[in-house]
Computed example of a mutant assay.
Amino acid sequence: MKERLLFLNRQIMPDESNEITLVGDLAAMDFTARQAIPLLLPYCAKDIACLYRYQEGCSRCGQCDINSAYAIAARYGLQPVTIQNYEMLEETLEKLKQQGCKGFIGTCCRRFWLKHDADFARLGVPGILINVENCTCYDLGKEQAAYQGSFSKQTRLKTRLLELVIDTILNSNRRFICEI
């Protein structure tokens, strides 16, 4: 796949490319505009005691990987969005589609993207998803709690890989077209 080769040509190791999935109509992705790129982040990566765990934002306290993701977003001019539940993901992707968004970057667990692969295609906004680092609600049998936005464990992000993917995309000749 040509898109995978783009990642392999940079500092991303071949085994790390297995942690990346491309969803939706990749031919529709357009990285040429200079509008904000949405960076979709799972609430479960926020510190369990964080005041922002169940709402948008980050205090940048350094207690979780969301702090690092926000720092990456700031460095590259991305718009971070915390996804609280599946319905919010649908609403966010629908809003992006209505605004003419041609792609997004996000991070979630492999089981989530496999479960919702058809949903991503149906919603019509292509994206790049990076797997998370550790066990998830699916691994712990808590997907119902996560579905409702109340998973009480903390997930780790692959922030190094996330930044390498973003850097690769932004330093290629293609940029996302969209704004949140």
Rank of each mutant, 00 (worst) to 15 (best):
A145G: 01
L8P: 02
F120D: 01
S17P: 00
C108W: 05
T21P: 00
E91G: 07
Q35P: 05
G24I: 02
C50L: 07
I12N: 09
A146M: 12
F120H: 06
G103D: 05
I66S: 01
L89S: 00
N18R: 15
R110M: 07
A121M: 09
K142F: 12
N18F: 11
L129C: 07
A33G: 09
Y70D: 05
L114W: 13
A118D: 11
L140M: 14
Q144M: 11
C137N: 10
E19C: 09
I12C: 08
D139P: 00
L161V: 14
L96H: 03
R4K: 15
F112E: 07
C58P: 05
P80E: 07
K153C: 11
G24V: 02
T32G: 09
E179Y: 10
K153E: 13
I83G: 05
I128S: 01
A146F: 08
D25I: 06
L170M: 12
L51C: 04
E91L: 13
R34Q: 12
E91Y: 11
L39N: 06
L89I: 02
I180D: 05
L157H: 04
I83A: 06
Q11N: 13
I105D: 01
S152W: 08
V81K: 14
L51G: 14
W113A: 01
L40V: 07
G127M: 09
Y147V: 03
A33I: 03
I166Q: 02
A49Y: 10
R160P: 00
R175N: 12
C58N: 12
V23W: 01
Q154K: 10
L5F: 05
D47Q: 13
D25A: 08
A28T: 13
I177D: 03
V132C: 12
C101P: 02
I166N: 02
A69K: 02
L5H: 05
M29W: 14
T159L: 10
I83P: 07
L93T: 08
K102D: 08
V165I: 12
V81S: 07
N131I: 05
M1Q: 08
C109S: 12
R175I: 04
A49D: 09
I48N: 08
Q99T: 04
A146I: 01
L41Q: 08
I72G: 02
L78P: 04
K46F: 08
N171V: 03
K2A: 10
N171W: 09
L39S: 06
F176L: 15
E87R: 13
A45P: 10
T155W: 12
Y147P: 00
G62V: 11
R4T: 15
K46W: 07
N131G: 03
N67M: 02
L157P: 01
Q63R: 14
Y70P: 03
L41K: 10
E56I: 03
I177A: 07
Y138E: 11
G149M: 07
R175F: 07
Y70M: 03
T82W: 00
A27N: 14
N173R: 14
